[in-house]
């Protein structure tokens, strides 16, 4: 017998949800086949889908931006808006965020829990790239950026924010009310800096930039040179 032909074509399921339609593609077969099956399913009911808002669940498939962008465009040809891509794959989630799409079907209630400090450390999101205008990173734990944060970009963290680079966008640490959160950067020149409910703007820089750490002291956001103590 020859190589078995993959008869397990990806299956596509469609159901209505509060925010429009949820289309689920299972994990069988290559993405190209899944995409084809999906477009076929939609093409057979093109009128039904015209103008629809669709969220897509791709299971564990890791999707690249080019693949997701292409699918969004192909769906656009049917008059469909792809607003969210749900996946267990971190790669796919990142791709969806970079294309400005949601990765969850509904906004989760803000997590009130503070992750208990443990010797093993706390949960943090590492972002190794330049954050340009219009990009937004939101994470319940800490956020660490290796790269610059340009004006117009925004970071919201439940915990601390560390920028190994120049911070010129908006940074909000301790977003769920933690006043002990800090913001550190090699060059701390944010458009606006928030810690918990307190807001501050950076004074114009004088002289050479040096690493600084901002924290709340006596109810005020203050930035102090980083001296490693």
């Amino acid at each position: 017998m020859e190589k078995p032909v993959s008869s397990s074509r990806p299956k596509v399921a469609i159901k209505g949800i509060r925010d429009g339609l949820l289309v689920t593609v299972d994990d069988a077969g290559a993405w190209e086949d899944a995409q084809e099956a999906l477009l076929e399913a939609i093409g057979s009911q093109a009128e039904f889908f015209q103008g629809a808002r669709v969220a897509l669940d791709v299971g564990t498939r890791p999707l690249k931006a080019a693949q997701m962008g292409k699918l969004r465009d192909l769906l656009g040809d049917f008059g469909i808006t792809l607003w969210a891509v749900v996946s267990e794959s971190p790669k796919t989630q990142e791709t969806a965020r970079s294309l400005g799409m949601a990765t969850r079907l509904s906004r989760p209630a803000p997590a009130p829990r503070r992750p208990a400090p443990s010797p093993a450390g706390e949960e943090a999101l590492l972002v190794h790239r330049t954050l340009r205008s219009g990009m937004r990173i939101a994470f319940p734990g800490h956020v660490v950026v290796i790269g610059n944060v340009h004006p117009g970009a925004e970071i919201v963290a439940g915990g601390n924010i560390v920028v190994w680079g120049r911070l010129r966008g908006v940074a909000h640490a301790g977003a769920d009310g933690n006043e002990s959160a800090v913001v550190c950067a090699l060059d701390l020149s944010p458009t606006q800096l928030r810690i918990a409910g307190r807001v501050a703007t950076a004074p114009p820089r004088r002289g050479r930039p040096a690493p600084e750490m901002a924290s709340v002291k006596d109810g005020q956001v203050v930035a102090e040179p980083w001296d490693g103590k």
């Binding site: 690249k64 931006a65 962008g69 970079s98 340009r132 219009g134």
Partner: peptide, 8 residues
Amino acid sequence: IGLIEAEE
């Protein structure tokens, strides 16, 4: 430029 990067 960010969007161009996102579209690879």
